[in-house]
Simulated scan of single mutants.
Amino acid sequence: MNGAGTGTVLAAGCVLWRRCGRVEIALVHRPKYDDWSLPKGKLKRGESARAGAVREVLEETGMRCVLGEALPTARYVVEGRPKEVHYWVAEALGGSFEPSREVDRILWLPPAEARVWLTHDRDRPLVDAFLKSSPSGV
């Protein structure tokens, strides 16, 4: 699933959540773009979207996760190329964040606050869909 024949960039990501007395979701800061977004990234050649979503969460947040319900697929254009990002709800199982060139900060925020922090309007409906999915009584 790499989109090579279509010219479409294929990616996957998650609305990563945890319960710390309250439900919080993870946002990552990407210094290259100076933005706050959900963990996501391009699929490797031959990689399934599910496997890519789990890998990207681990690489960007340091968290192991278990995927839950599929969320809406985001479609938009980046640098003149169509991009398609498959998303899932994902529960954080543990791990620890290590800053990198790609992601230098992570925030765990209640969904309503995270929605405000997101840089791109296209990410907000994913938080809304997460809330509708009601993982573990959100």
Rank of each mutant, 00 (worst) to 15 (best):
M1T: 12
G5D: 11
G5H: 07
G7E: 01
T8L: 01
V9Q: 10
A12L: 04
A12M: 07
G13R: 01
V15I: 09
W17T: 08
R18H: 00
R19P: 00
C20N: 13
V23G: 05
A26Y: 07
R30D: 10
K32N: 13
D34N: 15
W36Y: 11
L38S: 10
L38Y: 05
L38K: 07
P39Y: 04
K42E: 13
L43Q: 02
R45F: 12
G46R: 04
G46E: 09
E47S: 09
E47L: 10
R50N: 03
R50T: 11
V54W: 04
R55G: 12
V57P: 05
L58M: 13
E59C: 00
G62S: 01
G62D: 04
R64A: 15
E69A: 14
A70Y: 01
P72Q: 06
P72E: 08
R75K: 12
R75G: 01
E79L: 15
P82H: 04
K83A: 10
K83M: 14
H86A: 15
Y87D: 03
E91A: 15
G94K: 02
F97E: 08
S100G: 14
R101D: 15
E102V: 15
E102K: 14
V103R: 01
D104K: 11
I106G: 03
L107D: 11
W108Q: 03
W108M: 02
L109K: 05
A112H: 13
A114N: 04
A114W: 00
R115Q: 12
W117A: 13
D121F: 08
R122P: 01
R122E: 02
R124V: 11
V127H: 08
V127M: 09
F130E: 09
L131G: 09
S133V: 05
P135Y: 09
